[in-house]
Design a protein around this nucleic acid. Structure first.
Length: 399
RNA sequence: GGGCGGUUACCCAAGUGGCCAAAGGGGGCUGACUGUAAAUCAGCUGGCAUUGCCUUCGGAGGUUCGAAUCCUUCACCGCCCA
């Protein structure tokens, strides 16, 4: 039960106890634990936050258990309201299907493809009848839902709470029942869905309740709020080593503990040592964070990618030099600086580009540009730096 | 179905006839500093244009010299009553 987080010691003990018992039962039956975790394809990218439960699944795999990666194509139609304080936009089945396309492939960066079952929950959820829904819903009271924090807040604020939002929990519980799950993995925001709802439903429907493995939630690059693509604070799995390294480095110092614990391979003892070192001032926060970035990049891109990624980071951000590779931009005769910035997609409007120049955020070959209307006539390539992290290689007009 | 309240920029939220491109906060961006894209401080944050113009306050109409602000109507949300 290492790395779990229940926020309640009694619950943790109970779950640990049940897990021990279940292991014995399962052994008697001559099978392995059925472990599952669901992921809603509301966006096309898995990110570092998703890897927390996925890596736990991997551990179960390594112990030989039966792991199912559920793609919540059906649940994503509603969207989990657990950690949201307003209703979530509904997405279509088409969008969900499109987003789900590469989900499994992304998850295989961690999971063993040969030992992973992939399941789409619409295959069973879409078959339920209204009568089934009545049966599922009859096990819960409105009060149970309304006392959950996310809903309670909205109730108090007199914000809308839609009936269909309650279905999410029922659907997830039914997933667990349908898969005859022994162990369900989720973040702390899934406590209600798993511990209260799924377990209750499974029992009501004649199955043994599943055991909840509850993990901490990874904060996003802002260091505070849960990582999510829609908030723009995510570190996607599908990127390149340099970008991942840089994004990890942008995480505020205060979140380093969470990152080390949730998404690195360091042992609790090693992490304690690091934290003690930071506390005493023996370790430099920057160096610790770089170690963290190396570790994370190493997990997803291999040790050989770590050095180049770190070198690129040093070059650009520590030594403030330009990166080796940058996009080309072919200039035209009479083109103005602001036009280049807008056409290269670095700003949405000329006004925005003009502001950047006014704020001394644009440099041409290292020299601050003063005049946004400057007309560039190049006879040799020059490097345009826009803001801290955008570079363009400007090329002379083609004759 | 009836009564009341609400809908403001990326988000939250002030503004109840001109001084409103619209307070404040968050987020984002830029700069200084630094230890990094951390922390802190400062500035910027509708568009086009070198002092002006255009578009925006749920939608559509209207009143007015002038509307985010008043009226009509439609849509949506919340509360209370049924």
């Amino acid at each position: 039960m290492q790395g779990t987080k229940y926020g309640d010691e009694t619950l943790k003990q109970a779950m640990a106890q049940e897990l021990r018992m279940r292991l014995l039962e399962v052994e008697k039956e001559g099978r392995k634990l059925r472990v599952y975790c669901g992921f809603d394809p509301r966006t096309s990218d898995l990110h570092l936050g998703h890897t927390v439960p996925i890596r736990k699944m991997r551990q179960f795999q390594e112990l030989g258990h039966d792991v199912t990666f559920v793609i919540g194509r059906f649940t994503s139609l509603v969207g989990d309201p657990s950690d949201k304080n307003s209703v979530r936009a509904q997405i279509s089945m088409e969008d969900a299907t499109l987003n789900a396309e590469t989900y499994a492939e992304q998850a295989f960066k961690i999971l063993d493809p040969n030992q992973t079952r992939i399941a789409y929950n619409d295959t069973w959820l879409s078959k339920l009848t209204f009568q089934d829904l009545i049966e599922l819903a009859s096990h819960f009271t409105l009060q149970q839902f309304l006392t959950r924090e996310a809903f309670r807040k909205r109730w108090k604020a007199e914000d809308p709470i839609y009936l269909h939002e309650f279905f999410y929990t029922l659907m997830q519980g039914y997933d667990a029942y349908h898969l005859k799950t022994d162990v369900q993995i989720g973040g702390t925001d899934q406590l209600f869905n798993i511990v209260t709802a799924a377990r209750k439903l499974m029992e009501a429907l004649g199955e043994k309740p599943n055991i909840a493995i509850i993990l901490g939630i990874l904060p996003g690059t802002d260091g505070v709020v849960k990582m999510s693509k829609s908030l723009g604070n995510h570190i996607p799995l599908q990127t390149d080593p340099e970008d991942m390294y840089g994004k990890v480095m942008s995480v505020p110092d205060i979140a380093m503990g969470d990152y080390f614990r949730l998404v690195t391979r360091l042992t609790p003892t090693e992490i304690d040592e690091i934290e003690a070192g930071l506390e005493s001032g023996e370790l430099h926060p920057r160096d610790v964070k770089m170690r963290m970035a190396r570790e994370i990049v190493g997990i997803y891109y291999g040790e050989e990618s770590v050095e180049p990624a770190e070198a690129a980071f040093r070059r650009v951000f520590q030594e403030r030099e330009k990166p080796e590779e940058m996009p080309d931009f072919h200039t035209r005769h009479g083109i103005k600086l602001v036009e280049i910035i807008v056409e290269a997609g670095l700003t949405k409007s000329k006004s925005e580009a003009r502001r950047l120049v006014d704020q001394r955020g644009v440099r041409l070959d290292g020299v601050v540009v003063e005049d946004p209307k400057e007309i560039l006539e190049l006879d040799e390539p020059k490097v345009l730096r826009v803001g801290k992290r955008h570079f363009l290689r400007l090329l002379p007009p083609e004759e």
